[in-house]
Amino acid sequence: MANLNDSLIADPGPEAVFRDGLTSGKFIIQKCGDCDSHIFYPRAMCPECGSIKLTSLEASGQGTVYSTSVVRNRPEQGGNFNIAIVELAEGPRLMTRVQDIEPDQVQIGMAVEAFIGAIDDTPVVLFRPAEG
């Protein structure tokens, strides 16, 4: 008989799995075992179909810029930086920064690839223009 105190959600939870992945240099997303949707950000319930049969996997890292902006700052306040929404090849979108390119040269539709970088010592998923 199942123990009523056993959680249906694996321990550690999806958020911790994602954070642990970042710490070890991996970009983890999820896939729904019922509707096959890919999911980001990490959740304990599929936002498409409500299933909790979700598995974690490493993202391909391939994506396309869905929208982009430049947050303008004076140089003494750190200068300008890019803010973008990238649509992953797997489907989900996320906020990020596209780097290794001038922030105002990032274009909607541009092919980009993910890497794990850091902002203020916090590991985050960043993107750069895709090679080739």
């Binding site: 950000y41 947050v71 930086f81 996320l94 906020m95 990020t96 902002i119 203020d120 985050v124």
Partner: peptide, 9 residues
Amino acid sequence: PHESEYKPR
């Protein structure tokens, strides 16, 4: 949790 670390204005 998944946007503020990019410091969006």
